[in-house]
């Protein structure tokens, strides 16, 4: 089971709060999870659930208000200055908007070389060879495209260049924040396959953040579902999709649009919209929309508990897991 493996990243009670005093919004309200070496953890949820903020907090692009982030045993929330910059190179991030991820006024070669130049790890011909290698790995011909400006590329190509740049420092963990959601279906498949190939080749561990349940299922070993700043369910991808234990996961999966006319129509649609994170409900955050909610859900916050090996759910009344 997963326990025998070494967690590469251990996040404990991560909280991110924006604003002050009574305007404070907890975008991430106490999130704990581990990512084991070599696996892909999918993080799904609707907009505003805090999944992107979680990813950014791991890189400390936004400052966590509390909690610890241990990468390979080192707590990066305690680091600053050069040590932080150094720690960040072990993690890299790929962003949603492929066009805005690349400086339009720099050449592709320089963009990919930026991390190397920052750290002055390699110079001269060795550096050029490394960049050519990286660009070839992501399917961009360095001889033809290396000297072009980033603004001349399509979304899919930009995302390939972003991937090449993120791999330059040989990171251990790659955080993909909605990296394919701005791409066309056919290009999206190319990028997802490329990501899988590079993951194997570079021995990467991935945190794959996305709103698209189908995309997440296709790349993730385990999946965590977030709602209003908290993880409500986490477990092996197949098990979680087949038999969700949290009512919210069930609704989310029920709403997913499958490209199949025979897929069941959305018989049970989740009504209403998520409450404002400025004023979250007491107890369980999903209770205002949950058909099974009771008084206990309002009074007491459900703690994560194991319903099956490696499958945790934060719900007082988890749906019974019956495997087909």
């Amino acid at each position: 089971m997963t326990d025998t493996r070494q967690p590469l990243l251990r996040v404990q009670d991560l909280t991110v709060t924006f604003g002050h005093h009574h305007h404070a919004v907890s975008a991430v309200a106490g999130v704990s999870f581990e990512i084991y070496e070599g696996e892909t953890l999918g993080l799904v949820g609707e907009s505003g659930c805090g999944k992107s903020t979680t990813g950014k907090a791991l890189m400390r692009i936004v400052e966590p208000s509390s909690g610890t982030i241990e990468l390979g045993g080192v707590d990066i929330t305690e680091q600053n200055g050069r040590a932080l910059r150094n720690a960040r190179t072990h993690m890299q991030m790929i962003f949603q908007d492929p066009i805005s991820s690349l400086n339009p006024r720099r050449r592709v070669k320089d963009i990919v070389a930026e991390p190397l130049d920052c750290w002055k790890k390699v110079r001269g011909p060795e550096r050029d060879a490394m960049i050519s290698d990286l660009l070839s790995k992501v399917g961009i011909d360095p001889a033809v495209y290396g000297n072009r400006y980033a603004r001349q590329f399509s979304g899919g190509q930009c995302q390939r260049i972003s991937i090449a740049r993120s791999l330059a420092m040989r990171p251990k963990l790659l955080i993909c924040d909605e990296m394919v959601s701005a791409l066309d279906v056919s290009v999206q498949a190319q990028i997802l396959n490329l990501l899988e190939d590079l993951k194997a080749e570079y021995g990467l561990t991935l945190l794959f953040i996305a709103h698209d349940l189908a995309v997440v299922k296709n790349v993730s070993d385990r999946v965590a579902v977030m709602y209003l700043g908290k993880i409500c369910e986490i477990g092996p991808a197949d098990a979680l999709y087949e038999a969700p234990a949290h009512p919210y996961t069930k609704f989310l999966l029920g709403a997913a649009l499958e490209a199949d006319p025979d897929s069941p129509m959305h018989s049970q649609v989740l009504e209403g919209e998520p409450p404002s994170p400025m004023n979250p409900p007491s107890g369980c955050r999903f209770r205002t929309r949950c058909p099974n909610a009771t008084e206990r859900c309002a009074a007491e916050e459900p703690q994560p508990r194991e319903v099956a090996p490696g499958h945790q759910v934060a719900c007082h009344f988890p749906l019974s897991i019956t495997r087909k």
Binding site: T40, S154, G156, D184, V185, S186, V187, Q188, A189, Q190, L192, N193, E196, D212, L213, A214, V215, K217, N218, V219, S220, D221, A237, D238, Y241, L253, A256, E258, A259, D260
Partner: peptide, 23 residues
């Protein structure tokens, strides 16, 4: 187009069919 869209019923790490090139 149909084969390149990921499906919820796919198992993790399913290789997607791709269309080479771009529109």
């Amino acid at each position: 187009l149909l084969e390149s869209s990921p499906k919820v019923s796919n198992h993790p790490h399913t290789r997607l069919a791709t269309i080479p090139g771009r529109p």
